[in-house]
């Protein structure tokens, strides 16, 4: 046991440990915990109502039916769960840096990025996950999509790869705190992308389709990966590239974050 190297098992074990402690901490502020959870539930319900309000006036939007749009919506909720659950500590980075508390993360014998992110598990994301599953199951059923191995596997891989884009973007945005003041506004801006991800990218003109694929990768957060199940005839090369791009993107964001952390811990006292 003790001879274990810095391998995956070790990190998984540490993560679990810290996660449990974090949950215990949150429970100790019970009122806050309950209200925040309800608040998060509110955001999901409200998003849903907005969606419904628009669609009860219009049966379809540029060729996309109500249930297809619902499918995209459910997919996007699932794809946004990981960033909410596992990377929420990005939001506290500004405080950690300005108070100087960030330095304490630098003295532990484990990976800095890992240690920092492991400190918060945002359980509110699970509500979103449940909502996403429900929405997806409902629209899946209404659309009469086959429950085949291909589709299930495609869904899991698709959701996981799609989730990487928001994770990467948030890492990039929060890492800006290491260099500039006021980076929180950048985080807020980028966090809003999640609301835009749920629309099919075909509603935009050619220019913005390009922008939202390759400059601001909103298209990868839902549209491209979900085509694999929803519209097989429209699958593009980008659908298959989603996992590859996602992994590269997250890795780059990790490097950027670590570079920021290193140069910050050197200067800030």
């Amino acid at each position: 046991m003790e001879k274990e190297k810095n391998g995956f098992a070790f990190y998984a074990h540490i993560y679990k440990k810290i996660l449990i402690q974090d949950l215990k901490s949150k429970m100790s502020y019970r009122a806050d915990f309950i209200i925040s959870t309800i608040g998060m539930l509110f955001t999901n319900v409200a998003g849903f109502i907005t969606f419904w309000l628009i669609f009860q006036n219009f049966p379809q939007i540029s060729g996309w039916t109500y249930h297809e749009m619902l499918f995209l919506y459910g997919f996007s909720m699932l794809a946004l769960t990981p960033v909410q659950c596992f990377f929420d500590n990005n939001w506290n980075l500004s405080r950690a840096i300005h108070s100087g508390d960030f330095i304490k993360y630098c003295f532990r014998p484990i990976n800095l990025f890992f240690y920092y992110m492991s400190e918060v598990f945002d359980i509110k994301g699970l509500g979103q996950f449940a909502f996403g599953i429900g929405t997806l199951a409902y629209s899946w059923n209404k659309l009469g999509l086959p429950l085949s191995f291909r589709n299930i596997a495609g869904l899991i891989i698709g959701v996981l790869s799609a989730s990487l884009f928001m994770i990467a973007l948030m890492n990039f945005a929060s890492a800006l705190h290491f260099w500039i003041v006021g980076a929180t506004s950048v985080m807020i801006l980028i966090f809003k992308f999640k609301d835009y991800a749920r629309y099919p990218i075909t509603i935009f003109n050619k220019f913005f389709q390009f922008v939202f694929s390759f400059i601001i990768p909103i298209g990868f957060m839902t549209y491209y990966p979900s085509l694999f199940i929803l519209h097989q005839e429209r699958i593009s090369i980008l659908t298959y590239l989603t996992p590859v791009f996602g992994i590269v993107f997250v890795y780059l964001s990790y490097l950027f974050w670590m570079k920021g952390a290193r140069q910050y811990s050197g200067t800030g006292s």
């Binding site: 003790e2 274990e4 440990k17 502020y29």
Partner: peptide
């Protein structure tokens, strides 16, 4: 140390982190 937790819990995490 972990702010909201009893000290012993922090010690347990450190035990794992430092093996």
């Amino acid at each position: 140390l972990w702010w909201a937790l009893p000290v012993i819990e922090s010690f347990k995490i450190l035990k794992d982190i430092y093996r």
